[in-house]
Structure formats: structure tokens, C-alpha cells
């Protein structure tokens, strides 16, 4: 049981987390923008998260917290 929590207010939609997730459970929201005008990253299948924290490690904006 693990989960990645994305602070959408901080996310700039750069997609680096999406590119490194080994379980391919991250994507940029297609039809949603945050207050900054970015399409934030979102988790598509929280149950599949293994808590590897690679998304958190590569996020330049410290927008991702990972729990396990």
C-alpha cells in the first residue's frame, strides 16, 4: 500500500514525474488547469503505486509527497 500525493497548486505540469514512473500511473490532466495555468500531474491508479518515490525525487517543484 503506497501513494503519491501531488500538490496540484504547486505543479507546473512539466511531466518529468510522468516520464519516470515505473508503473505508468501518472499523467498530465488533459482537461484541467491549476491556478498557474498548467495541466497538473495526476495519479491514474493509486492502488498500483509501489512507493518508489521516483516521481518525488525528480519533481523540480517539490510538489509530490510519497507515503508507503
Amino acid at each position: 500500500m503506497a501513494r503519491a500525493i501531488i500538490d496540484e497548486k504547486i505543479c507546473k505540469g512539466c511531466g518529468l514525474c510522468v516520464s519516470v514512473c515505473p508503473k505508468k500511473i501518472l499523467r498530465l490532466a488533459a482537461c484541467r488547469m491549476n491556478d498557474k495555468g498548467y495541466n497538473p500531474a495526476e495519479v491514474t491508479d493509486q492502488a498500483a503505486c509501489i512507493g518508489c518515490a521516483m516521481c518525488g525525487i525528480i519533481c523540480p517543484d517539490s510538489a509530490i509527497t510519497v507515503e508507503k
Binding site: 501513494r3 518525488g56 509527497t65 510519497v66 507515503e67 508507503k68
Partner: peptide, 12 residues
């Protein structure tokens, strides 16, 4: 659940 990764307290 335990914290695996979070923002450093050395950042504002």
C-alpha cells in the same frame, strides 16, 4: 503509512 519522500525542511 510512513513518509517515503517529502519536501526538505531546508527549503522555504
Amino acid at each position: 503509512m510512513a513518509m517515503v519522500y517529502e519536501k526538505s525542511k531546508m527549503l522555504t
